[in-house]
């Protein structure tokens, strides 16, 4: 079965239903996408090339904006996507002065 889920027709990211390997060719209906890097289950991949500032859509709804340009098949996560509401923190947050 397909390893990439398109949750809504308007979405510009796809969700991995299994771990995928760098270079893997992934089928999404008629579209073929090559994974630019290894991506874990539950993470997101760009459906097409998109410029910085693009609103990322999942479930057909905005989940934030791209902070850099991405290629089709690229992993979309905290390194290139940021909230339009409240910034996300990591485990080093508690060490900040």
């Amino acid at each position: 079965m397909t390893k990439l889920l398109l949750l809504h027709p308007d979405d510009n990211v796809l969700v991995c239903a299994a771990d995928i390997a760098r270079g893997e060719e992934l089928f999404m209906g008629d579209e073929i996408l090559v994974a630019r890097e290894s991506v874990a289950m539950g993470h997101k991949v760009a459906r097409r090339a998109m410029p910085r500032g693009t609103k990322v859509l999942r479930y057909g709804a905005p989940i934030g904006s791209l902070t850099e340009d991405v290629e089709a098949g690229a992993w979309v996560h905290g390194h290139n996507l940021a909230s339009d509401y409240i910034a996300t923190h990591d485990r080093t947050a508690g060490e900040a002065a």
């Binding site: 969700v15 991995c16 874990a40 289950m41 539950g42 993470h43 997101k44 999942r58 479930y59 709804a61 905005p62 989940i63 934030g64 979309v76 996560h77 905290g78 996507l81 940021a82 909230s83 339009d84 509401y85 409240i86 910034a87 996300t88 923190h89 990591d90 485990r91 947050a93």
Partner: peptide, 23 residues
């Protein structure tokens, strides 16, 4: 200073507060 979002949410593929919210 922080949203309702834990580091493990990001490890598991969620990137932003609103993405977690929609789910």
């Amino acid at each position: 200073g922080y949203g309702s979002f834990a580091p493990g949410n990001a490890d598991g593929g969620l990137t932003t507060q609103e993405e977690k919210s929609l789910g």
